[in-house]
Amino acid sequence: MRNRTLLERIRLLGAAGIAVVGALGRSTIFLLRALFGRGSLGNGTQLLVRQLYAVGVLSLPIILVSGVFIGMVLSLQGYSILNKYGSEQAVGQMVALTLLRELGPVVTALLFAGRAGSALTAEIGNMKSTEQLSSLEMIGVDPLKYIVAPRLWAGFISLPMLATLFSVVGIWGGAMVAVDWLGVYEGSFWSNMQNSVEFGNDVLNGVIKSVVFAFVVTWIAVFQGYDCDPTSEGISRATTRTVVYASLAVLGLDFILTALMFGDF
């Protein structure tokens, strides 16, 4: 009896492993086909513009509002700690570095997964369940080209833009709190920041991070939609999976990228 349950457990483990490898394989083929498959559509740019609007512009409000608040909170916390050591003019440096290196890319990617990623999954899942994808295929249009590819590109382009904007409004919010409310001397706030922030090391590395996150989050979102069970239950499960997987992937990758970029090895 015990033997059987052990064997059964090993079997379940094997089945889960096969399922994971299968999903990875399918999603890779899916990605390659969507991005590099033959055949393009004449109105590709128009499709891309429409998706940039849906994915990028519509995510702006939440990104900007969160950015300002996070910058303000960073500034308040930083001030109350640095104040004890009499170096409150380092607040600018702290806010800018935190935002550029970590919070900008990471928080934007997390918000993006919640706002745009889940919407992408639900939209594509819905198209699948209402047979719009099959219908496209029957009309002789490859849904990977018409539906999936523009959404992927829109995600790749939007997220780095959003992350950059997030950092900028965050720094602005931080400056507002530090300079206008807490009375940090404005000149040293900015000069301190400018002395410590390096364009190549901090700004560009942050952008590279958000490009990587954009790739992963959009890929997960679009694939989950395309691969979901075409039922309302299946769509809601796929949407949840998008947010969970994308968030975990972002946080995990962030650690690896940080170690590679800022770690000393």
Partner: peptide, 17 residues
């Protein structure tokens, strides 16, 4: 949106770093 994104990068380059 795209313009704002690029402008933000420019701002980071000039003002912040």
């Amino acid at each position: 949106f795209l313009l704002a994104g690029l402008l933000a990068l420019l701002l980071l380059a000039l003002r912040v770093s």
